[in-house]
Amino acid sequence: MGGIRTAGDLVARLQLNRGMRIDAAKKYVAEKLGVSVLDLSDTVVMSEVREELDIGRVNETPAVAKGIDAKFRIAELLDLAINCVNMFKERVGIRAYQSFD
C-alpha cells in the first residue's frame, strides 16, 4: 500500500493484531482518520493527514513525530494497543493507557 508514505502501516496493524481482512481494516482506519478509503493509498492526501495527526511521515520536518513518538499517537488514534508503546510507558512510568492529553 505504501507504508508510511500512505496508510499502509496502519492498515497492516489491524491485519496483524486484529486479524482484520483488507476491506474491514481499511474502513476502520479511514473512519479513525476521518478520510475516505480511497484516500488511504494516496500519498498526497496521506502525507498531509499524517503531518496533521502527527503520526510520522517519510519526509520529516522539524518537530514532527518520529519512531515511538508517532506510535504513541497511532495507538491512541486507532484505539489499538501497540506492544512497544505499552512497554515504553511501563518503563518510563506512564501508567494510564490513554495518557498524553
Binding site: D9, K66, I68, A70, K71, C84
Partner: peptide, 10 residues
C-alpha cells in the same frame, strides 16, 4: 528498532 520505526514490526 521499535523506538525508531513506525510501521508494525515482526
Amino acid at each position: 528498532a521499535v523506538l525508531q520505526t513506525i510501521a508494525p514490526i515482526f
